[in-house]
């Protein structure tokens, strides 16, 4: 009999399920991949076969035009992937279609969270706490300085600034997949039903969300606005890279906002010239990370992509077995 959990092996470019010769979120093309969600640092094209939730596959098709080899797996559905391994996709609460992947073999249970959060999000299914032996968790915001406030507070801040800046516009930098749609949905839930203007890079993903049943209200492209004046008093959404770009010159007196977990730290906001920081993240904050580990209560915690050191230290202090994985290709995204 082989050593416990020898069938699962972290490599720099992904997690290898050895007996099934299948990879989770690999950063290079492989014969068969399980993909947790559609963000570029987890999903890429070129795999022989891609197993993911239907929504994630739709996102991947939009982004990488990957139709060949797509195998949809619904939440809760359990499939045999070979080598005696079963894989189950469970909601992760990160973005539309995002999943944790539960792998089971000979009574041993491993969960790979992908990216996740515990805060409520109207655009995706909530994280399911599931018992396991090895819990492989993300740690993007793995420092105790990161606490994401309730999103309602940040949305109120945004609407207050909008009312104070009625002559101009509020330009919100938000990641094009997930963050943008969540901000829109939360604005609608807060009773803001005005037209929201979009950067061109946001359009297709917003349409996909709507096709998947997430209502986003009245949206319009900035390039379709009849005049600069038409955008006075309006919220405009753009990818963070467009905030200080020439593109923003077409907006009426924009106040620069950014929706990101990094906005918790003043220096990060100032570096990017952000005047209105909105601490909105699709990742677990420190408190969510630590309470999730405690609730799942695994024998061992493996920590990946992000600030592994601090979370490792927390596990140590709380007498939990843990190790840090060094995976490549996962970077500070514009969360």
């Amino acid at each position: 009999m082989s050593a416990p959990f020898a069938w699962i092996r972290p490599e720099p470019w992904g997690i290898h399920i050895v007996p099934a010769d299948t990879w989770v979120d690999p950063s290079r093309a492989v014969p068969r991949a399980l993909v947790t969600h559609g963000h570029a640092d987890h999903a890429r094209g070129g795999h022989g076969e891609t197993l993911a939730t239907p929504a994630t596959l739709a996102i991947m098709q939009l982004r990488y035009n990957t139709q060949a080899g797509a195998v949809p797996v619904d939440y809760g559905e359990s499939i045999a992937i070979g080598g005696g391994v079963r894989a189950t996709f469970l909601p992760a609460g990160h973005v539309l279609g995002s999943a944790q992947i539960l792998l089971e073999r000979a009574g041993e249970r491993v969960i790979i969270t992908g990216d996740y959060k515990r805060a409520p999000d109207p655009t995706c299914a909530p994280f399911a706490v599931t018992p396991c032996d090895i819990f492989i968790t993300e740690a993007t915001f793995g420092l105790p300085v990161f606490t994401h406030p309730p999103i309602g507070e940040e949305i109120s801040k945004l609407l207050k600034s909008l009312s104070e800046n009625a002559e101009g516009s509020v330009l919100v930098g938000a990641y094009a997949l997930g963050k943008a749609q969540r901000v829109i949905a939360e604005l609608r839930a807060a009773g803001h039903h005005d037209t929201i203007f979009l950067h061109g890079a946001m359009e297709a993903m917003c349409r996909l969300y709507e096709e998947q049943g997430v209502a986003l209200g009245d949206l319009r492209l900035v390039s379709d606005a009849p005049s600069k004046d038409a955008m006075r008093g309006a919220i405009v959404l753009a990818p963070p890279s467009a905030l200080n770009d020439r593109w923003s010159r077409r907006l009426p007196a924009p106040l620069t906002a950014m929706a990101s977990g990094w906005m918790r730290v003043r220096g990060r906001a100032r570096q990017r010239g952000v005047e209105l920081p909105l601490v909105i993240s699709d990742h677990a904050d420190w408190n969510e990370l630590t309470t999730t580990i405690a609730a799942v209560n695994p024998q061992e915690t493996w920590i990946t992509h992000g600030r592994e050191e601090a979370l490792l230290r927390w596990c140590q202090l709380n007498q939990r077995r843990a190790r840090a994985l060094a995976l490549v290709g996962y970077e500070d995204e514009d969360d």
Partner: peptide, 21 residues
């Protein structure tokens, strides 16, 4: 914990802000 403090202080870059958070 001093290790968590040091990691946080390094990331934030400002003692007052780190302590406030």
């Amino acid at each position: 914990d001093p290790v968590l403090w040091a990691l946080s202080r390094d990331f934030v870059g400002d003692t007052a802000e780190t302590a406030s958070l």
